[in-house]
Nucleic acid binder design. Structure first.
Lengths: 222, 222
DNA sequence: ATAAATCTTGACCGTTTGGTCAGGTTTTGT
DNA sequence: ACAAAACCTGACCAAACGGTCAAGATTTAT
Protein backbone atom coordinates (compact mmCIF):
# COMPACT_ATOMS: atom_id res chain seq x y z
CA UNK A 1 0.00 0.00 0.00
CA UNK A 2 2.81 2.34 0.89
CA UNK A 3 5.84 2.52 -1.34
CA UNK A 4 7.60 4.87 1.05
CA UNK A 5 11.28 3.95 1.26
CA UNK A 6 11.76 5.13 4.82
CA UNK A 7 10.44 3.06 7.67
CA UNK A 8 7.71 4.37 9.96
CA UNK A 9 5.02 6.46 8.31
CA UNK A 10 5.17 9.71 10.24
CA UNK A 11 8.26 11.13 11.80
CA UNK A 12 8.03 9.51 15.19
CA UNK A 13 10.67 8.98 17.80
CA UNK A 14 11.50 5.39 16.93
CA UNK A 15 14.90 3.98 16.15
CA UNK A 16 17.96 4.72 18.24
CA UNK A 17 20.32 4.34 15.29
CA UNK A 18 18.03 6.38 13.09
CA UNK A 19 17.89 9.30 15.48
CA UNK A 20 21.61 9.28 16.07
CA UNK A 21 22.43 9.26 12.36
CA UNK A 22 19.86 11.90 11.48
CA UNK A 23 21.31 14.17 14.12
CA UNK A 24 24.85 13.53 12.94
CA UNK A 25 23.94 14.19 9.31
CA UNK A 26 22.00 17.36 10.07
CA UNK A 27 24.83 18.74 12.15
CA UNK A 28 27.28 18.07 9.31
CA UNK A 29 24.84 19.46 6.76
CA UNK A 30 24.36 22.67 8.77
CA UNK A 31 28.11 23.20 8.74
CA UNK A 32 28.55 22.52 5.02
CA UNK A 33 25.49 24.54 4.00
CA UNK A 34 26.69 27.40 6.21
CA UNK A 35 30.04 27.47 4.44
CA UNK A 36 28.85 26.97 0.87
CA UNK A 37 25.17 27.79 0.50
CA UNK A 38 22.67 25.33 -0.96
CA UNK A 39 24.08 25.18 -4.49
CA UNK A 40 27.70 25.17 -3.41
CA UNK A 41 27.29 22.40 -0.87
CA UNK A 42 27.82 18.84 -2.10
CA UNK A 43 26.36 15.67 -0.64
CA UNK A 44 29.85 14.17 -0.74
CA UNK A 45 31.19 16.96 1.49
CA UNK A 46 28.31 16.50 3.94
CA UNK A 47 28.96 12.75 4.00
CA UNK A 48 32.65 13.26 4.72
CA UNK A 49 31.89 15.80 7.45
CA UNK A 50 29.48 13.31 9.02
CA UNK A 51 31.93 10.43 8.61
CA UNK A 52 29.47 8.35 6.63
CA UNK A 53 29.27 7.08 3.06
CA UNK A 54 27.37 9.33 0.70
CA UNK A 55 24.68 6.72 0.03
CA UNK A 56 23.83 6.79 3.72
CA UNK A 57 22.84 10.44 3.52
CA UNK A 58 20.45 9.66 0.70
CA UNK A 59 19.07 6.69 2.62
CA UNK A 60 17.86 9.00 5.39
CA UNK A 61 16.97 12.18 3.52
CA UNK A 62 16.32 11.19 -0.09
CA UNK A 63 17.55 14.35 -1.80
CA UNK A 64 19.84 17.27 -1.02
CA UNK A 65 16.84 19.60 -1.21
CA UNK A 66 14.94 17.62 1.46
CA UNK A 67 17.97 17.61 3.73
CA UNK A 68 18.32 21.37 3.30
CA UNK A 69 14.63 21.83 4.05
CA UNK A 70 15.06 19.78 7.25
CA UNK A 71 18.03 21.91 8.31
CA UNK A 72 16.11 25.13 7.63
CA UNK A 73 13.05 23.93 9.56
CA UNK A 74 15.26 23.01 12.48
CA UNK A 75 16.77 26.50 12.49
CA UNK A 76 13.40 28.24 12.26
CA UNK A 77 12.16 26.16 15.21
CA UNK A 78 15.25 27.22 17.17
CA UNK A 79 14.63 30.86 16.26
CA UNK A 80 10.98 30.79 17.30
CA UNK A 81 11.67 29.01 20.59
CA UNK A 82 14.27 31.61 21.51
CA UNK A 83 11.81 34.51 21.30
CA UNK A 84 10.88 35.12 24.90
CA UNK A 85 7.36 36.35 25.36
CA UNK A 86 7.24 40.06 26.05
CA UNK A 87 4.35 41.71 27.82
CA UNK A 88 3.24 45.32 28.05
CA UNK A 89 3.77 45.33 31.80
CA UNK A 90 7.45 44.31 31.55
CA UNK A 91 10.27 46.73 32.16
CA UNK A 92 11.56 48.17 28.85
CA UNK A 93 15.26 48.28 29.78
CA UNK A 94 15.33 44.76 31.22
CA UNK A 95 13.33 43.32 28.36
CA UNK A 96 15.53 44.84 25.66
CA UNK A 97 18.76 43.86 27.45
CA UNK A 98 17.51 40.29 27.92
CA UNK A 99 16.55 39.97 24.28
CA UNK A 100 19.95 41.24 23.12
CA UNK A 101 21.74 38.81 25.42
CA UNK A 102 19.61 35.87 24.26
CA UNK A 103 20.30 36.64 20.60
CA UNK A 104 24.03 37.07 21.25
CA UNK A 105 24.17 33.68 22.95
CA UNK A 106 22.59 32.10 19.89
CA UNK A 107 25.17 33.83 17.67
CA UNK A 108 27.97 32.58 19.88
CA UNK A 109 26.83 28.98 20.26
CA UNK A 110 24.99 28.22 17.02
CA UNK A 111 26.88 30.31 14.44
CA UNK A 112 26.30 27.82 11.65
CA UNK A 113 22.54 28.01 12.07
CA UNK A 114 22.80 31.74 11.71
CA UNK A 115 24.99 31.43 8.63
CA UNK A 116 22.65 29.03 6.84
CA UNK A 117 19.86 31.52 7.43
CA UNK A 118 22.02 34.42 6.22
CA UNK A 119 22.94 32.52 3.07
CA UNK A 120 19.28 31.94 2.34
CA UNK A 121 18.47 35.63 2.85
CA UNK A 122 21.26 36.82 0.54
CA UNK A 123 19.87 34.54 -2.17
CA UNK A 124 16.50 36.25 -1.88
CA UNK A 125 15.01 33.78 0.61
CA UNK A 126 13.20 31.63 -1.99
CA UNK A 127 12.44 28.83 0.46
CA UNK A 128 11.60 30.79 3.61
CA UNK A 129 9.62 33.67 2.18
CA UNK A 130 6.42 32.26 3.63
CA UNK A 131 7.93 32.13 7.12
CA UNK A 132 9.28 35.68 6.78
CA UNK A 133 6.03 37.19 5.56
CA UNK A 134 3.81 35.39 8.07
CA UNK A 135 5.24 34.25 11.40
CA UNK A 136 8.22 36.62 11.51
CA UNK A 137 6.17 39.56 10.23
CA UNK A 138 3.56 38.97 12.93
CA UNK A 139 6.23 38.63 15.61
CA UNK A 140 7.83 41.94 14.58
CA UNK A 141 4.49 43.74 14.45
CA UNK A 142 3.46 42.44 17.87
CA UNK A 143 6.76 43.43 19.48
CA UNK A 144 6.81 46.83 17.77
CA UNK A 145 3.30 47.45 19.11
CA UNK A 146 4.57 46.83 22.63
CA UNK A 147 7.43 49.26 22.12
CA UNK A 148 4.98 51.83 20.77
CA UNK A 149 2.80 51.25 23.82
CA UNK A 150 5.75 51.93 26.11
CA UNK A 151 6.53 55.07 24.14
CA UNK A 152 2.93 56.29 24.35
CA UNK A 153 3.03 55.78 28.10
CA UNK A 154 6.22 57.83 28.33
CA UNK A 155 8.20 54.85 29.61
CA UNK A 156 10.81 55.25 26.86
CA UNK A 157 11.84 57.81 24.26
CA UNK A 158 10.14 57.83 20.85
CA UNK A 159 11.90 55.55 18.36
CA UNK A 160 11.14 53.91 15.02
CA UNK A 161 10.25 50.65 16.77
CA UNK A 162 10.28 48.32 13.75
CA UNK A 163 13.68 49.53 12.54
CA UNK A 164 14.99 49.30 16.08
CA UNK A 165 14.07 45.62 16.16
CA UNK A 166 15.60 45.03 12.73
CA UNK A 167 18.83 46.70 13.75
CA UNK A 168 19.06 44.79 17.03
CA UNK A 169 18.57 41.62 15.04
CA UNK A 170 21.33 42.43 12.58
CA UNK A 171 23.84 43.73 15.15
CA UNK A 172 23.58 40.50 17.11
CA UNK A 173 23.53 38.33 14.01
CA UNK A 174 26.67 39.84 12.56
CA UNK A 175 28.85 38.37 15.30
CA UNK A 176 27.99 34.94 13.93
CA UNK A 177 27.59 35.59 10.20
CA UNK A 178 30.61 37.83 9.66
CA UNK A 179 32.79 36.51 12.47
CA UNK A 180 35.69 36.19 10.02
CA UNK A 181 35.61 39.91 9.35
CA UNK A 182 35.53 41.00 12.98
CA UNK A 183 38.19 38.48 13.98
CA UNK A 184 40.47 39.77 11.21
CA UNK A 185 39.90 43.44 12.02
CA UNK A 186 40.38 42.84 15.75
CA UNK A 187 43.51 40.78 15.09
CA UNK A 188 42.12 37.61 16.71
CA UNK A 189 44.08 34.96 14.84
CA UNK A 190 42.25 32.09 16.58
CA UNK A 191 38.80 33.52 16.02
CA UNK A 192 36.61 35.58 18.35
CA UNK A 193 36.91 34.84 22.06
CA UNK A 194 34.13 34.83 24.70
CA UNK A 195 35.31 38.27 25.84
CA UNK A 196 34.64 39.59 22.35
CA UNK A 197 31.03 38.45 22.54
CA UNK A 198 30.70 40.05 25.98
CA UNK A 199 32.09 43.35 24.68
CA UNK A 200 29.72 43.24 21.70
CA UNK A 201 26.75 42.49 23.96
CA UNK A 202 27.64 45.49 26.13
CA UNK A 203 28.10 47.79 23.14
CA UNK A 204 24.78 46.82 21.58
CA UNK A 205 22.92 47.07 24.89
CA UNK A 206 24.37 50.50 25.63
CA UNK A 207 23.46 51.68 22.14
CA UNK A 208 19.87 50.47 22.34
CA UNK A 209 19.24 51.73 25.88
CA UNK A 210 20.68 55.15 25.09
CA UNK A 211 18.58 55.32 21.93
CA UNK A 212 15.48 54.57 23.98
CA UNK A 213 16.43 57.08 26.68
CA UNK A 214 16.61 54.30 29.25
CA UNK A 215 20.08 55.16 30.49
CA UNK A 216 21.72 58.55 31.09
CA UNK A 217 24.17 59.67 28.40
CA UNK A 218 27.11 61.60 29.74
CA UNK A 219 28.12 64.20 27.20
CA UNK A 220 31.51 64.81 28.84
CA UNK A 221 34.05 62.40 30.20
CA UNK A 222 35.62 64.70 32.79
CA UNK B 1 58.87 34.90 -25.61
CA UNK B 2 55.49 35.34 -24.00
CA UNK B 3 52.93 32.57 -24.17
CA UNK B 4 50.30 34.73 -22.51
CA UNK B 5 46.94 34.20 -24.17
CA UNK B 6 45.62 37.66 -23.51
CA UNK B 7 46.80 40.56 -25.62
CA UNK B 8 48.70 43.45 -24.06
CA UNK B 9 51.10 42.54 -21.29
CA UNK B 10 49.92 44.73 -18.46
CA UNK B 11 46.34 45.75 -17.85
CA UNK B 12 46.27 48.94 -19.86
CA UNK B 13 43.34 50.85 -21.22
CA UNK B 14 43.57 49.55 -24.78
CA UNK B 15 40.79 47.95 -26.77
CA UNK B 16 37.33 49.41 -26.95
CA UNK B 17 35.70 46.00 -27.46
CA UNK B 18 37.82 44.50 -24.70
CA UNK B 19 36.79 47.10 -22.15
CA UNK B 20 33.13 46.87 -23.05
CA UNK B 21 33.06 43.09 -22.79
CA UNK B 22 35.04 42.99 -19.56
CA UNK B 23 32.62 45.44 -18.00
CA UNK B 24 29.63 43.47 -19.24
CA UNK B 25 31.02 40.18 -17.94
CA UNK B 26 31.98 41.59 -14.56
CA UNK B 27 28.56 43.12 -14.08
CA UNK B 28 26.92 39.78 -14.89
CA UNK B 29 29.41 37.93 -12.70
CA UNK B 30 28.73 40.23 -9.75
CA UNK B 31 25.04 39.46 -10.01
CA UNK B 32 25.48 35.69 -10.30
CA UNK B 33 28.13 35.49 -7.57
CA UNK B 34 25.89 37.61 -5.33
CA UNK B 35 23.02 35.20 -5.74
CA UNK B 36 24.95 31.93 -5.52
CA UNK B 37 28.33 32.41 -3.91
CA UNK B 38 31.56 31.36 -5.59
CA UNK B 39 30.96 27.61 -5.59
CA UNK B 40 27.29 27.86 -6.48
CA UNK B 41 27.83 30.23 -9.41
CA UNK B 42 28.39 28.64 -12.82
CA UNK B 43 30.24 30.12 -15.75
CA UNK B 44 27.29 29.13 -17.94
CA UNK B 45 24.94 31.25 -15.79
CA UNK B 46 27.33 34.19 -15.96
CA UNK B 47 27.57 33.83 -19.73
CA UNK B 48 23.80 33.77 -20.11
CA UNK B 49 23.41 36.81 -17.83
CA UNK B 50 26.01 38.64 -19.94
CA UNK B 51 24.41 37.49 -23.20
CA UNK B 52 27.64 35.93 -24.45
CA UNK B 53 28.81 32.39 -25.18
CA UNK B 54 30.53 30.67 -22.29
CA UNK B 55 33.83 30.40 -24.17
CA UNK B 56 33.91 34.16 -24.38
CA UNK B 57 34.02 34.47 -20.59
CA UNK B 58 37.03 32.18 -20.51
CA UNK B 59 38.65 34.08 -23.32
CA UNK B 60 38.78 37.23 -21.19
CA UNK B 61 39.23 35.86 -17.69
CA UNK B 62 40.75 32.41 -18.04
CA UNK B 63 39.18 30.74 -15.02
CA UNK B 64 36.17 31.25 -12.77
CA UNK B 65 38.53 31.90 -9.85
CA UNK B 66 40.28 34.74 -11.72
CA UNK B 67 36.95 36.30 -12.66
CA UNK B 68 35.83 36.10 -9.04
CA UNK B 69 39.10 37.66 -7.93
CA UNK B 70 38.57 40.51 -10.40
CA UNK B 71 35.04 41.09 -9.10
CA UNK B 72 36.26 41.10 -5.49
CA UNK B 73 39.07 43.53 -6.27
CA UNK B 74 36.61 45.82 -7.99
CA UNK B 75 34.36 45.79 -4.92
CA UNK B 76 37.24 46.45 -2.53
CA UNK B 77 38.31 49.41 -4.66
CA UNK B 78 34.75 50.74 -4.51
CA UNK B 79 34.69 50.29 -0.73
CA UNK B 80 37.97 52.08 -0.21
CA UNK B 81 37.07 54.96 -2.50
CA UNK B 82 33.83 55.50 -0.59
CA UNK B 83 35.59 56.08 2.73
CA UNK B 84 35.60 59.83 3.05
CA UNK B 85 38.58 61.15 4.90
CA UNK B 86 37.73 62.15 8.44
CA UNK B 87 39.77 64.65 10.39
CA UNK B 88 39.97 65.41 14.10
CA UNK B 89 38.74 68.94 13.53
CA UNK B 90 35.51 67.80 11.83
CA UNK B 91 32.15 67.97 13.55
CA UNK B 92 31.25 64.59 15.10
CA UNK B 93 27.52 64.67 14.36
CA UNK B 94 27.93 65.79 10.76
CA UNK B 95 30.74 63.33 10.11
CA UNK B 96 28.84 60.34 11.47
CA UNK B 97 25.63 61.29 9.67
CA UNK B 98 27.51 61.73 6.39
CA UNK B 99 29.22 58.37 6.73
CA UNK B 100 25.91 56.61 7.42
CA UNK B 101 24.29 58.26 4.43
CA UNK B 102 27.21 57.38 2.13
CA UNK B 103 27.11 53.72 3.18
CA UNK B 104 23.33 53.56 2.78
CA UNK B 105 23.62 54.93 -0.72
CA UNK B 106 26.07 52.17 -1.58
CA UNK B 107 23.67 49.58 -0.15
CA UNK B 108 20.85 51.00 -2.20
CA UNK B 109 22.65 51.36 -5.51
CA UNK B 110 25.22 48.55 -5.47
CA UNK B 111 23.47 45.79 -3.52
CA UNK B 112 25.13 43.02 -5.49
CA UNK B 113 28.61 44.25 -4.58
CA UNK B 114 27.59 44.15 -0.96
CA UNK B 115 26.16 40.65 -1.33
CA UNK B 116 29.30 39.24 -2.96
CA UNK B 117 31.29 40.62 -0.06
CA UNK B 118 28.82 39.19 2.47
CA UNK B 119 28.98 35.77 0.83
CA UNK B 120 32.74 35.83 1.10
CA UNK B 121 32.61 36.79 4.78
CA UNK B 122 30.12 34.02 5.67
CA UNK B 123 32.48 31.52 4.04
CA UNK B 124 35.26 32.66 6.36
CA UNK B 125 36.76 35.23 3.97
CA UNK B 126 39.48 32.91 2.59
CA UNK B 127 40.33 35.24 -0.28
CA UNK B 128 40.08 38.65 1.40
CA UNK B 129 41.62 37.91 4.77
CA UNK B 130 44.68 39.92 3.85
CA UNK B 131 42.58 42.96 2.98
CA UNK B 132 40.57 42.64 6.20
CA UNK B 133 43.59 42.29 8.47
CA UNK B 134 45.62 45.06 6.83
CA UNK B 135 43.84 47.90 5.04
CA UNK B 136 40.45 47.55 6.71
CA UNK B 137 42.00 46.98 10.15
CA UNK B 138 44.08 50.14 9.77
CA UNK B 139 41.08 52.12 8.55
CA UNK B 140 39.03 51.04 11.58
CA UNK B 141 41.85 51.79 14.02
CA UNK B 142 42.43 55.23 12.53
CA UNK B 143 38.75 56.16 12.62
CA UNK B 144 38.30 54.75 16.13
CA UNK B 145 41.24 56.88 17.26
CA UNK B 146 39.47 59.99 15.97
CA UNK B 147 36.29 59.06 17.82
CA UNK B 148 38.33 58.48 20.98
CA UNK B 149 39.94 61.88 20.48
CA UNK B 150 36.50 63.51 20.24
CA UNK B 151 35.45 61.66 23.40
CA UNK B 152 38.57 62.76 25.29
CA UNK B 153 37.84 66.36 24.30
CA UNK B 154 34.31 66.02 25.62
CA UNK B 155 32.84 66.60 22.18
CA UNK B 156 30.78 63.38 22.37
CA UNK B 157 29.75 60.82 24.99
CA UNK B 158 32.04 57.88 25.76
CA UNK B 159 31.37 54.90 23.50
CA UNK B 160 33.12 51.69 22.47
CA UNK B 161 34.34 53.32 19.28
CA UNK B 162 35.44 50.19 17.38
CA UNK B 163 32.15 48.36 18.03
CA UNK B 164 30.26 51.51 17.11
CA UNK B 165 31.96 51.50 13.71
CA UNK B 166 31.29 47.76 13.25
CA UNK B 167 27.64 48.18 14.09
CA UNK B 168 27.20 51.17 11.80
CA UNK B 169 28.76 49.09 9.05
CA UNK B 170 26.43 46.16 9.59
CA UNK B 171 23.23 48.19 10.05
CA UNK B 172 23.81 49.92 6.73
CA UNK B 173 24.96 46.74 4.99
CA UNK B 174 21.89 44.73 6.02
CA UNK B 175 19.60 46.81 3.82
CA UNK B 176 21.48 45.39 0.82
CA UNK B 177 22.44 41.91 2.00
CA UNK B 178 19.18 40.89 3.64
CA UNK B 179 16.84 43.04 1.57
CA UNK B 180 14.63 39.99 1.00
CA UNK B 181 14.00 39.65 4.72
CA UNK B 182 13.10 43.28 5.33
CA UNK B 183 10.93 43.46 2.24
CA UNK B 184 9.03 40.36 3.38
CA UNK B 185 8.60 41.57 6.96
CA UNK B 186 7.54 45.04 5.81
CA UNK B 187 5.14 43.53 3.28
CA UNK B 188 6.82 45.16 0.27
CA UNK B 189 5.93 42.72 -2.47
CA UNK B 190 7.96 44.59 -5.10
CA UNK B 191 11.06 44.93 -2.95
CA UNK B 192 12.23 47.84 -0.82
CA UNK B 193 11.36 51.32 -2.06
CA UNK B 194 13.48 54.49 -1.85
CA UNK B 195 11.37 55.63 1.11
CA UNK B 196 12.41 52.47 2.99
CA UNK B 197 16.07 53.38 2.56
CA UNK B 198 15.36 56.91 3.76
CA UNK B 199 13.55 55.60 6.85
CA UNK B 200 16.43 53.24 7.59
CA UNK B 201 18.98 56.03 7.18
CA UNK B 202 17.03 58.18 9.63
CA UNK B 203 16.68 55.36 12.16
CA UNK B 204 20.39 54.50 12.06
CA UNK B 205 21.44 58.13 12.26
CA UNK B 206 19.15 58.82 15.22
CA UNK B 207 20.44 55.71 16.98
CA UNK B 208 24.10 56.61 16.49
CA UNK B 209 23.72 60.28 17.40
CA UNK B 210 21.74 59.47 20.54
CA UNK B 211 24.34 56.87 21.50
CA UNK B 212 27.05 59.48 21.16
CA UNK B 213 25.05 62.10 23.07
CA UNK B 214 24.98 64.35 20.02
CA UNK B 215 21.24 64.87 20.01
CA UNK B 216 18.83 65.33 22.91
CA UNK B 217 16.76 62.28 23.84
CA UNK B 218 13.26 63.07 25.00
CA UNK B 219 12.22 60.55 27.63
CA UNK B 220 8.53 61.48 27.33
CA UNK B 221 6.38 62.09 24.30
CA UNK B 222 3.77 64.36 25.92
C1' DA C 1 16.17 -19.22 17.29
C1' DT C 2 14.73 -16.93 13.44
C1' DA C 3 12.46 -14.06 10.40
C1' DA C 4 11.19 -9.46 9.50
C1' DA C 5 12.70 -4.82 9.61
C1' DT C 6 16.19 -1.75 9.36
C1' DC C 7 20.61 -0.18 8.22
C1' DT C 8 24.93 -0.10 5.29
C1' DT C 9 27.64 0.80 1.19
C1' DG C 10 30.56 -0.04 -3.19
C1' DA C 11 29.56 0.37 -7.71
C1' DC C 12 27.24 2.55 -11.01
C1' DC C 13 24.50 6.14 -14.07
C1' DG C 14 23.05 10.30 -16.56
C1' DT C 15 23.84 15.20 -16.15
C1' DT C 16 26.30 19.34 -15.21
C1' DT C 17 30.52 21.44 -14.37
C1' DG C 18 34.93 24.31 -15.48
C1' DG C 19 37.87 24.53 -18.99
C1' DT C 20 40.06 23.79 -23.90
C1' DC C 21 40.75 24.37 -28.68
C1' DA C 22 40.75 24.76 -33.63
C1' DG C 23 39.20 27.38 -37.08
C1' DG C 24 36.79 31.23 -38.35
C1' DT C 25 35.47 36.49 -38.33
C1' DT C 26 36.32 41.21 -37.26
C1' DT C 27 39.15 45.10 -36.04
C1' DT C 28 43.38 47.65 -36.22
C1' DG C 29 47.79 49.63 -37.76
C1' DT C 30 50.37 51.01 -41.60
C1' DA D 1 45.10 47.17 -49.51
C1' DC D 2 46.51 43.78 -46.52
C1' DA D 3 48.65 41.47 -42.89
C1' DA D 4 48.85 41.15 -38.06
C1' DA D 5 46.43 41.34 -33.92
C1' DA D 6 42.40 40.71 -31.53
C1' DC D 7 38.10 38.63 -31.04
C1' DC D 8 34.55 34.93 -31.39
C1' DT D 9 32.36 30.41 -30.57
C1' DG D 10 30.47 25.49 -31.53
C1' DA D 11 32.13 21.32 -30.31
C1' DC D 12 34.40 18.80 -27.23
C1' DC D 13 36.56 16.69 -22.75
C1' DA D 14 37.66 14.88 -18.04
C1' DA D 15 36.06 15.51 -13.52
C1' DA D 16 32.55 16.18 -10.22
C1' DC D 17 27.82 16.18 -9.37
C1' DG D 18 23.13 14.29 -7.28
C1' DG D 19 21.04 10.26 -7.08
C1' DT D 20 20.10 4.90 -7.55
C1' DC D 21 20.37 0.16 -6.51
C1' DA D 22 21.22 -4.53 -5.30
C1' DA D 23 23.26 -7.31 -2.14
C1' DG D 24 24.87 -7.97 2.28
C1' DA D 25 25.22 -6.83 7.51
C1' DT D 26 23.00 -5.72 11.70
C1' DT D 27 19.29 -4.93 14.84
C1' DT D 28 14.76 -5.92 16.64
C1' DA D 29 10.53 -8.37 17.92
C1' DT D 30 8.56 -12.56 19.11
Amino acid sequence: MDNNTEPMTDENAQGRIRLENIERIMKAAEKVFAGNGFRGATTAAIAEEAGLPKANIHYYFGTKAKLYRAVLDDIIALWLSSFREIGEEDDPATTLADYIRAKMELSQHRPNASKVFANELIRGAPRINKYLSTELKEWVEAKAAILDHWIAEGRMAPVDSERLLFHIWVMTQTWADFEAQWAAVLGRKNGLQPADFDAATDAITTMVLRTCGLVPVLPRSS
